[in-house]
Computed example of a mutant assay.
Amino acid sequence: SSNLGRTIQSVRQAVWDGRKLIRWLKREGYREVSVLGMSLGSWVAGLIAAHDPAVSKASLFLTAGSLADMVWTGRATRSIRLSLEPLIELTDLRKAWGPLNLENYAHNLARSDLELHLVLATRDKVVLPDLSKRLIQKLKDAGARPSVLELNCGHYSLAMPPYILLSGLSLKRFLSCADKSPRRI
């Protein structure tokens, strides 16, 4: 949303709800908890994983570090940028949405008891691949060893065969074993 505070508030509420659900699952006897998010949901899942030590695996589809940069450069968020641009510059938006920037939590996401899986679309016009790669580099610099699947598709075409099948198989492997080796397809 072009309402900066509302965006922070809604993502904060989503993270809070996710963490409450995890506490409930733990009380119900679940030992391992994994989170998955796609696109904007990947920011929510990433923030949950960064702040909740009960999360053992996080899979982030079509994500990047800076939500501000994604909104500023993405094709699908052009209308948000156009409404923000007369009022705020990108550097100020990065500061305002700093709490939503996964790069700021790279060390939290690099903790030894958290496994990370990222799926990127190399022709994504919503979450530009360079933004995703910047997050991956920040994670690696912090000591994380994420499993990364890069698919030659766009943001929305990830939902179509064969890409959805390849990403689903990658997710299945990630959740069923400790495979941390990078893949490129």
Rank of each mutant, 00 (worst) to 15 (best):
S1P: 07
S1C: 09
N3W: 14
R6A: 12
I8Y: 05
S10D: 12
V11A: 05
V11H: 01
A14P: 07
A14H: 09
V15W: 07
W16D: 13
D17G: 15
D17Q: 15
G18F: 04
R19C: 10
K20P: 09
K20V: 15
K20I: 12
L21Y: 12
W24D: 15
W24M: 12
L25F: 14
G29Q: 15
R31V: 11
E32Q: 08
V33C: 08
S34H: 13
L36R: 06
M38D: 05
L40R: 02
G41Q: 04
V44M: 09
A45I: 03
L47A: 06
I48S: 05
A50I: 05
A50H: 05
A50M: 08
H51C: 13
D52K: 09
D52L: 08
A54Y: 13
V55R: 03
A58D: 07
T63V: 02
L67S: 00
M70W: 00
V71Y: 03
V71R: 01
T73F: 02
G74T: 01
R75Y: 08
T77P: 01
S79H: 15
S79G: 11
S79T: 14
I80M: 07
R81G: 02
R81I: 02
P86F: 10
L87S: 14
E89I: 07
L90P: 02
D92Y: 05
D92T: 08
K95H: 11
W97H: 01
G98P: 01
N101S: 04
Y105D: 02
H107Q: 10
N108P: 06
L109S: 00
A110Q: 06
A110Y: 06
R111M: 11
L114W: 11
E115A: 09
L118E: 00
L118S: 00
V119M: 05
L120C: 08
A121S: 14
T122L: 04
R123Y: 08
R123I: 07
D124Q: 07
V126K: 01
L128N: 01
L128D: 00
P129Q: 10
L131Y: 00
K133M: 10
L135E: 01
L135W: 00
Q137F: 03
K138G: 00
K138W: 01
P146D: 06
P146R: 02
P146H: 04
V148K: 02
E150F: 07
N152V: 12
G154N: 10
H155M: 04
Y156R: 04
S157C: 12
S157P: 05
L158E: 03
A159Q: 13
M160Y: 13
Y163K: 07
I164M: 12
L165R: 14
L165P: 08
L166H: 09
S167W: 03
S167L: 04
G168A: 15
S170F: 06
S170Y: 06
S176T: 15
S176Y: 11
A178S: 14
D179P: 11
K180P: 03
S181L: 12
S181D: 12
P182C: 09
R183Y: 10
R183W: 10
R184C: 12
